[in-house]
Design a protein around this nucleic acid. Structure first.
Length: 594
RNA sequence: GGGGGUGUAGCUCAGUUGGUUAGAGCGAUCGCCUGUCACGCGAUAGGUCGAGGGUUCGAGUCCCUUCACUCCCGCCA
């Protein structure tokens, strides 16, 4: 018999009454009645109430013991009387009458309570993460994460994928995020980079003939954190397939995600078959390439209305002449909303750095008119035209924003969320997935005006290769796609370019000479020259999937040992200084800014 | 790099227009209590009001600087 326990803390039931048991766990809570003491003993599995009275010689020792001390309890399982049954816990019909106990791990006064639903400052949670992780919600999140990963592994195997590991110490790549660098002792002055993703390796795996690859892969990017973005490291379900087209990847990933989300969440999936939205359409209708499709509001471009002579809204008209656009959001049947709702949106838009949002409500008595501060500037004809363009009806309201395209997209996208939240149009009990497709291969760098890759340089351009017009690179679309769920970007992927000549051609447009490509991507370009299969893949973010399933807004709530926003591990004190000998061995010297 | 928010007891927070000795709940310590499950009751200890400077007769409160945490922008193929 194990010397610590015969049962865990969630095991004992009515049928066990009368048996002698050993339980080990943490003291979750004590209720001391002076002559009678209740102890809630907790472990990973649950809670069991234990009880001892003054007759017992251990009573006074147990009475003094700190919460969160680890003890072993020896006692008898006894029935609880009907009125003392606790339905909140699985073991609530019984309790342990304590014979004796033993301290297995002492506990000092706690820096933060474990048994509490209170929220704590992250600083203290991260410093004492081992205490924080004992708390119910986050403990369950981490277990969920494990189960999700294990489920995904099984599904991938079932779908014919095999898991292969790829190197953690690899080479720095010029495109993309900032690399984490690791100095090489054996090669003074040279550095490894931690992989931003196993992108090149998974393509090499395809060239090596393995057909279907996946990996729950750690990825490292030295970029600033966000609520949904860990600094430093995160995990992707990295996958790649040979001899596939875009649709083949879509079919596999849709199946996988639908199964995973149905397995682990009770929320409704609005679409089993994910709608496909082109990048261009997404920016117009939603102002962003990661739209929340639970939100029914749609953005319309109505710039043309402001070129009409019977519209006299001069502020917008002037801006339109100077190259601005006007876009609007229609809210259904909001004619009776209070003035404060409309002004609130306008004020909010100003707080977001926009020049505000104009609005009016469509009304009809004898003729159609617009009611609101700027309503008088619109003729009935122009209103009819507007209604036709936007599907607005009498009783609806329209919010307008005017600006240069990028800024306009930003503010209308935010406004779409804001207005929908105000009107409670978003059903939080559902998941809305979509594909964003047809990303442009290239884009213009706003500052340098140079052409650069807009996403992944290894993506395959769309269309017949012989007919691609390289003279107009900004018009070339790529077989590049993203998955978005509830406004969160879950993954991006592509059909890859496996043709070396085409690769050189595309890199030359982005300003790389053949020699540079050979140097920087020698492994890849070399491999593509020795018989590469057409291939493609995608890499859904594991942390974000678990975040959605756990209904959390912050990625640290589903990460066991996260770093803080400044990329520091407060528990392990990383990063830390290293000594002179270590530096010397690596042929490094520090040049710190003062 | 930039913008917003927060910082008061071990933890979560209150603290009015600048005005006497900075408070509460939880936790800790001590005492009382035999059926609780957020047990109850009483007492005690516990404070560089993030730090530095300034204004003032007087600063937790106003001003300046700075630090930490957090959210956002930039960044993240």
């Amino acid at each position: 018999m194990n010397k610590y326990r015969t049962h865990n803390c969630n095991e004992l039931r009515k049928k066990d009454v009368g048996s002698k048991v050993l339980l080990s766990g943490w003291i979750n809570k004590k209720r001391d009645h002076g002559n009678l003491l209740f102890i809630d003993l907790r472990d990973n599995f649950g809670i069991t109430q234990c009880i001892i009275d003054k007759e017992n010689s251990s009573f006074s020792k147990l009475e003094k013991i700190q919460l969160e001390t680890v003890i072993r309890i020896e006692g008898n399982v006894v029935n609880r009387s009907t009125e003392t049954i606790n339905k909140e816990i699985d073991t609530g019909e019984v309790e342990i009458s304590i014979d004796n106990f033993k301290v297995l791990g002492t506990c000092q006064e706690l820096p933060m309570p474990v048994f509490s639903d209170q929220e704590y400052a992250e600083e203290i949670r991260l410093k004492y993460r081992f205490l924080d992780l004992r708390r119910k919600k986050i403990h369950e999140n981490i277990i969920l994460r494990s189960k999700v990963i294990s489920f995904i592994r099984n599904e991938m195997n079932r779908l014919g994928f095999l898991e292969y590991q790829t190197p953690i110490l690899t080479s720095s790549s010029p495109e993309g995020a900032r690399d984490f660098l690791v100095p090489s002792r054996l090669n003074p002055g040279k550095f490894y980079a931690l992989p931003q993703a196993p992108q090149q390796f998974k393509q090499l795996i395809m060239v090596s003939g393995f057909d279907k690859y996946f990996q729950i892969a750690p990825c490292f990017r030295d970029e600033d954190a966000r609520a949904d973005r860990s600094p430093g490291e995160f995990y992707q379900l990295d996958l790649e397939m040979s001899f596939v087209e875009q649709e083949d990847v879509f079919n596999i990933v849709e199946k996988l995600l639908v199964n995973t989300f149905k397995e682990f969440s009770k929320k409704e999936l609005i679409f089993d078959k994910f709608p496909k939205i082109s990048y261009k359409d997404a920016l117009l209708k939603y102002g962003t390439d990661k739209p929340d499709l639970r939100n029914p509001l749609i953005i319309n471009d109505v710039t043309e209305i402001f070129l009409r002579d019977d519209v006299s809204f001069d502020i917008f008209k002037k801006l339109v002449k100077l190259g601005s656009n006007v876009r609007c959001i229609v809210t259904k049947n909001t004619k009776n909303n209070p003035r404060s709702f409309f002004d609130g949106i306008d004020k909010w838009a100003k707080d977001q750095g926009a020049s505000g949002m104009a609005y009016f409500t469509l009304e009809k008595e004898k003729s159609i008119s617009a009611k609101g501060p700027v309503g008088k500037f619109f003729s009935e004809d122009s209103l009819k035209e507007l209604m036709k363009k936007t599907n607005a009806e009498v009783g609806d309201s329209i919010f307008f924003a005017c600006g240069k395209l990028k800024e306009l997209q930003r503010i209308t996208s935010l406004a779409r969320d804001k207005i929908a939240n105000e009107l409670k149009l978003i059903d939080d009990n559902s998941f809305a997935f979509c594909w964003i497709v047809d990303y442009p291969m290239f884009e213009e760098d706003e500052q340098t005006k140079k052409i650069k890759f807009s996403h992944n340089p290894f993506s395959m351009p769309q269309g017949d290769i012989d007919k691609i017009n390289f003279k107009k690179p900004l018009e070339i679309l790529a077989y590049q796609y993203d998955i978005v769920c509830n406004g969160i970007e879950l993954s991006s992927g592509a059909i890859r370019n496996h043709i070396p000549e085409l690769m050189y051609k595309l890199f030359s447009i982005a300003g790389y000479e053949k020699k540079q490509v050979d140097e920087k991507f020698s492994g890849m370009i070399n491999a593509l020259s020795y018989g590469a299969p057409p291939h493609g893949g995608i890499a859904p973010g594991i942390d974000r999937i678990v975040m959605l399933l756990a209904n959390e807004k912050n990625i640290r709530e589903v990460t066991m040992f996260p770093m803080n926003q400044n990329a520091q591990d407060l528990m392990m004190n990383a990063p830390s200084e290293i000594n002179e000998d270590q530096l010397k061995e690596l042929s490094l010297s520090l040049r710190l800014k003062k």
